[in-house]
């Protein structure tokens, strides 16, 4: 009985121990969840040396160090917030590709909403102007139109 449990545990452990191949290290994670967290953190962290690459893409020495740091922090049980705090305390919010809303970046987040509001306002004003110009059709043109409608109605009755 004990032996089968042991075999089952071993089999499960070998299945769940997933390793990923980076260019510098081959990291082994104890659970697939940890590996997924590692992968997604790599994608959302910027390499500061080569600024348009994420940590996952970069081969810079600093990126290798930061990958190792993130791996170590995940392995010792830190959650994502602790890891991101650790990095932003040292390198600033610039390291985040997806920064959270704060006072500094609020204009960037709010500008699109403001633009939509301005757009809605402009369109509604144009629409109102359209209504108003409808109201000032010259009387002669209105008379002509009325006469035409009357004429057409009579024609349709005759048919």
């Amino acid at each position: 009985m004990m032996v089968t449990i042991r075999i089952a545990v071993l089999a499960f452990a070998s299945l769940s121990a997933v390793s990923i191949l980076a260019s510098d290290y081959s990291y082994t994670f104890t659970t697939p969840q940890r590996e997924m967290r590692y992968q997604s953190l790599m994608e959302e962290l910027r390499c500061l040396v080569c600024q348009n690459q994420s940590l996952a893409d970069s081969n810079a020495g600093l990126a290798q160090d930061l990958r190792k740091k993130v791996y170590d922090m995940i392995s010792t049980g830190n959650d994502d917030d602790q890891i991101l705090d650790f990095l932003t305390d040292r390198y600033g919010k610039f390291i985040l590709y997806d920064p959270k809303l704060n006072y500094e970046n609020a204009p960037l987040w709010l500008l699109p909403i403001l633009m939509i509001c301005i757009g809605v306002y402009v369109i509604s004003r144009l629409a109102k102007q359209g209504e108003r110009s409808e109201a000032v059709i010259p009387q002669s043109a209105q008379d002509d139109a009325d006469a035409l409608v009357k004429h057409l109605e009579e024609r349709s009755k005759q048919l």
Binding site: L48, V49, R90
Partner: peptide, 12 residues
Amino acid sequence: DGELGMDLGVYG
């Protein structure tokens, strides 16, 4: 190993 460098936020 760049440990102080990391604490200082050294990137270049």
